[in-house]
Nucleic acid binder design. Structure first.
Lengths: 168, 168
DNA sequence: TTAAACTTTCAAAAATAAATGAAAATTAAA
DNA sequence: TTTAATTTTCATTTATTTTTGAAAGTTTAA
């Protein structure tokens, strides 16, 4: 396979994966494009490579910056802004994990703890099932939360190394 | 908070979480409803509780069965079908992990291994960056894959217990 | 200043995903 | 069988998400 073809395949695959995980397809594609670009790209270049509009490119790049996955660069003598993607995969994974934890897991943990307070008739099967399900999910969510917190602090080799040491 | 209100909050939260993770909101809500129901429900009951159409209820329930999260039950003397959700949270997490691994991670691993074969000019920065990014993502994906495989085999207490023993 | 280069915004359009509901298909009791 | 109950299908409709593109805003060089 040629580089050009591989690049297209990579962008396509990353976009598909993103959309399956609730991330806008175009955003994932722009990220993929920047990931395989040695140099920072301009908005124009992103627009041209992916055939997307200026507005779309601009908003998507801004979102990627908000996620901490891309940074703006300025080149001396150049008026335009350049966009460069963080290349360290483990850092990317941590950024995504951190952001989604903050946006999604933390709110869910809050709601679950409220739902743990629901009072009712201990004889009522509906109440008992509710209680048990909420308690179980709460326990799992807290374990996931603790694991993520560990991951956010860890180096990749340490994190996976330690996991596999245990489960070998 | 009352049971009725808590139930609504739970269904709403589960639906929102689902949609953030690429799962149809209604499907997550039906799952939530069944999770807190001590008894198996009929299609009619699901339709009424969530105010959704027959077609939607039918398709959603079928999808949940495909995911292995819900099973059909038949009651003697009853013509209708009843739907019951697996209540063991760890089993649910494993089912979801297994299914998404199969549907999403496995195809990505396959593409990444193809992309590892891309040939090009070692002096070309575009080629070098492509190679490095693909190799790094491949490594991470394989580690995630191994961790998932471990999780699929493990008991919850063992899995998290072992992780926290290491990271204490 | 001013004017060209560049970035951002956002209402409208297009694309995509999900839901409806009535008809067709299936099932099982009479 | 026949028929009534129940489930499934799927063309249409509705809702949601994403993209466009032109206008407004901003920046910087002359």
């Amino acid at each position: 396979m040629e580089l050009a073809e591989g690049k297209l395949k990579f962008i396509e695959a990353w976009g598909k994966l993103g959309s399956e995980w609730g991330i806008n397809r175009t955003m994932a594609q722009v990220h993929a494009l920047l990931l395989v670009s040695p140099e920072a790209l301009t908005t124009e270049e992103v627009m041209a490579e992916l055939s997307i509009s200026r507005g779309n490119a601009n908003m998507t790049l801004r979102d990627l910056i908000d996620w901490g996955l891309v940074e703006k660069q300025h080149k001396t003598g150049e008026r335009k802004e350049f966009f460069y993607a963080e290349k360290d995969t483990w850092a990317i994974a941590r950024r995504v994990a951190e952001e989604r934890k903050k946006r999604e897991l933390d709110p869910v943990l809050k709601i679950l703890s409220q739902l743990s307070e629901v009072k009712g008739d201990e004889k009522d099967p509906a109440y008992k099932t509710f209680k048990t399900s909420v308690a179980d999910i709460n326990k799992l969510a807290k374990n996931v939360n603790k694991t993520l917190e560990t991951m956010l602090k860890a180096e990749e080799s340490w994190f996976f190394g330690s996991i596999f040491k245990i489960f070998k």
